[in-house]
């Protein structure tokens, strides 16, 4: 075992040189690279963690916003539903009012038509009854109906005269107003003289008596004296017929109210 001292010291120097060079070329660089990499990875992990936190916050904010929007949408929907319900109720009320109005108008129209119909019916009925009765009286009694009406009217004056027409004889106002006798037919001269003969028992001589023909009257005759009316007309009978006819019509159409 022999030690070469030159080689011994040379090896020490060699080792020190190698340690120094490797420290510069190897360890320093490698350790620096590893530290840099670790720092970078740590930085990336921290950055990823931050992004993850940020993403989580964004997701939570989004969920919160979504929840808020849903609640808002629900509120708007509820409000719209309420408003729609209210509007529908208003429209129903309005429609009902319109229907009632239309129904009322219809009832009015129907009532007017009914009235017009009944009026027309009354006229026609009166006319037909007048014609029928005239024809019957003319055929059976061999006497004109008009004469019968005049006779009836004369009797009516006579019956009334006993009670109330006596007052006419003292009524000076009649000289101004006169007496108007309306009839549905033209009163003949003989018939007029019958009436005048009867009236002269109750009136002063200078009272003016006018005869008028009114087609609106139904087979009748009437006299207006100082606000009093003395009349006979088929109209009274026709009115009874009309009442019964209206009652019959109401029974046939019960939903139609009275006009």
């Amino acid at each position: 075992m022999h030690i070469d001292w030159f080689v011994f010291f040379a090896q020490i120097v060699n080792f020190l040189i190698l340690a120094y060079v490797l420290k510069r070329l190897l360890y320093g660089r490698i350790v620096k690279a590893m530290d840099d990499r670790q720092a970078r990875i740590t930085s990336q992990i921290e950055e990823a963690q931050q992004m993850k936190d940020k993403a989580r916050e964004s997701a939570e904010a989004f969920e919160e916003k979504n929840r808020s929007l849903n609640e808002m949408a629900q509120d708007v929907l509820n409000k719209a539903r309420d408003e729609a319900g209210k509007t529908r109720q208003d429209l129903i009320e309005k429609a009902r009012e319109e229907v009632d109005l239309i129904q009322q108008r219809w009832y009015d129209t129907l009532g007017r038509e009914k009235t017009s119909f009944l009026e027309n019916l009354r006229k026609r009925s009166g006319t037909y009854v007048f014609e029928t009765i005239s024809r019957i009286l003319f055929d059976l009694a061999d006497q004109e109906l008009e004469q019968s009406i005049v006779n009836k009217f004369v009797r009516l004056i006579r019956e009334a005269g006993k009670e109330s027409l006596d007052l006419l004889s003292h009524d000076r106002a009649l000289q101004n107003t006169g007496i108007v006798i309306k009839s549905s037919f033209e009163i003949s001269a003989s018939q007029r003289s019958m009436i005048l003969d009867e009236l002269k028992h109750y009136t002063v001589a200078d009272v003016e008596i006018n005869f008028e023909t009114s087609p609106a009257m139904v087979a009748g005759i009437e006299m207006l004296v100082s606000g009093h009316k003395y009349s006979w007309s088929i109209k009274d009978y026709i009115a009874s017929l009309e009442e019964r006819f209206a009652q019959l019509l109401k029974e046939e159409i019960p939903s139609i109210p009275d006009a």
Binding site: V7, A10, N14, I17, L26, R29, I30, I41
Partner: peptide, 29 residues
């Protein structure tokens, strides 16, 4: 001596290898 020669040989490999490898170091992944 041969000891020194082989020592330098080993040193050369270590130094040259370290230089070649670490001259393009990357701190990337």
């Amino acid at each position: 001596t041969a000891t020194l020669l082989y020592t330098w040989f080993v040193m050369g490999i270590l130094i040259l290898g370290s230089w070649l490898i670490t001259r393009k170091m990357s701190s990337d992944v």
